[in-house]
Nucleic acid binder design. Structure first.
Lengths: 143, 143
DNA sequence: GCATAATAGGATAAAAAAGTCTTTTTATTC
DNA sequence: GAATAAAAAGACTTTTTTATCCTATTATGC
């Protein structure tokens, strides 16, 4: 469904949000540990998310990553789009470049609802909203 | 969402079904052309589907692939499982090995419905059912 | 039974994704 | 302003996926 990049990116954002809520910044090393992602790999991902302004970063001692109030409104869809591009929105489920409503692939009609559902889920859930649940130990980020 | 293998496999099965309905067998070359898939790649895919008994094949002159009455009842889910394995059923959307109902990842609850929808779609649509629509030119297999 | 046309199978190659390493830059603190 | 701790950047490696090629096998029709 998502690339590893995207999976790690989402987990990282949720983890950073949590730390930000506690008022602290978190380093790459910390994110890697907290999300079970390879350190150097997650570094590249955070860089990219930083470039795209979905996360704030400060260099040097006591630096690290954090989310500001605006960042907390980032939806899962925003992260997916930043890391995996628009493929979820635009790609035909059978890989046909010219598939669309008027010239559909065989499963276009059947997949329409699934896609709508998926996109709805990605757009309606923001990073900020995951905080409360993580607090209460209702879910987990690592195995 | 699906691997290329799976995309080509689904298209190939639909295409072969069509030919079978017309009473003829279709060669790898024919399938490759009819589905826009690389010939040698689709050959391997059909081999695998043959081994798994989702498609019948006959070697030699006038040989080729075809679907019998039982094969026509193959669902999209059967093809996906044969080629991509059970990952759609079993994998956590964030890649967590231990994610489940009692120890969920952050998006487990939100993704539940999407997954249910997707699986329903894959299981409810059989290869045989696509035939009529393809006949009437209602959809396309190649760009 | 021989030529042929097809699938079967395995080896290899190319491309993309995932992951690692090293160096550079930049804040911070003392 | 020097030492340090962090991110930024880019090069590189490994693994996986996608794709190709070659040889073997097998069924068919003459």
């Amino acid at each position: 469904m998502f690339s590893k990049t995207c999976e790690y990116g989402i987990k990282a954002m949720i983890f950073v949000a949590q730390k930000s809520k506690e008022g602290s910044r978190i380093s790459i090393k910390g994110i890697a540990k907290g999300t079970g992602a390879p350190e150097h790999f997650v570094a590249k991902i955070m860089q990219e998310l930083g470039r795209k302004k979905l996360v704030q970063s400060v260099k040097g001692p006591n630096g690290g990553f954090y989310l500001d109030q605006v960042d907390l409104k980032t939806s899962l869809a925003d992260i997916v789009k930043a890391l995996d591009g628009n493929s979820i929105y635009s790609d035909c489920v059978l890989g046909l470049k010219t598939c669309n409503e008027s010239k559909p692939c065989p499963v276009h009609d059947q997949y329409r609802d699934v896609k709508k559902n998926l996109i709805k889920m990605l757009e309606e859930n923001t990073i900020g909203e995951f905080n409360n649940k993580l607090d209460s130990g209702k879910f987990f980020l690592v195995n």
